[in-house]
Amino acid sequence: MKTLIIAEQRDGTLKKPTKELVHAFSQAGHEVHVLLTGEGVQSLSETIGNYGAHTIHTAEASELKLYTAEATTRATLALVETIQPDAIVASHTPTGRDFMPQVAMKLGAGLASDCHQVTLSSDSITARRPVYAGKASAEVEFVGNGPQCYTIRANSFGNPSEGTSSAKQETLNVDLSGLKTKATSNESGNSGRPDVTEASVVISGGRSLKSAENFEILEKLADLLGGGVGASRAAVDAGFRPHRDQVGQTGKVVSPSLYIACGISGAIQHLAGMRTSKTIVAINTDPDAPIFQIADYGIVGDLFEVVPLLTEEVKKIK
């Protein structure tokens, strides 16, 4: 199967979910073409090759330096016309979910978004996606014409490994005249921590953290593990964390290898955002807290005591 993957980079750094996709589809035997857009990003195309891509098509222009959906859609459509892929795939990140529907509509093609269980063979893709915030899931069947379009949730395939590249390098020229949107600048969030949707470890805290400052306890553990810090809505509503850290049905849906819920009761709306995590740990003073029903490992205890102890233990193995 010929599969086009749209690479994602920010400030010249290749996004981890892109590596994951290139590696997984290449491993499955797809002829993986990658579109890389930006300005001065040529060196990234070498890296992409190391994850197994067949061909990397690089489009460079000042209009592509800062991402816009409009320019990225144009570049994607230009490449689709030349290589005629069977499938077009992007990560279900704020970038992928922004432009992929526009690509799909322009091609008159269907889009399966936020797929979290994806099974690949060399000539097929089978994808399931959560519905009702993970309270159920369903398989997506394509019933129309056109290439199959997918956005896939980060961490759906596991950690990609780098090899040596045998990829072909191509240059893509894109007509970028008459664009209606313009990206003027980026304001960096600058927390230095991975976003909860991308992190392979997420440590979340609830109302019981009692203050914004107390989240430092979780941040220390997260930083040791290279993880992200999440929060329940109660913690966000109390102003301890920004809304972008909220995990749940009206926040972010995360699927890390390890999710540690600290002082979170496990309301249905919170579970909706994290139940697909591979391993779930709950730390709560209340032995009957609903979070324990979906936790793989539970500690009944005071998070202010237990979390620093965990941090010490992790330091020992690092």
């Binding site: 920010r10 800062l66 991402y67 816009t68 990140t93 704020p94 970038t95 949107t181 313009k182 990206a183 003027t184 600048s185 980026n186 304001e187 960096s188 969030g189 600058n190 927390s191 921590r193 991975p194 976003d195 949707t197 991308e198 920004p242 972008r244």
Partner: peptide, 10 residues
Amino acid sequence: VEGGTIEVLE
């Protein structure tokens, strides 16, 4: 977007 980064667009 991710990590609290803000994209400014016109």
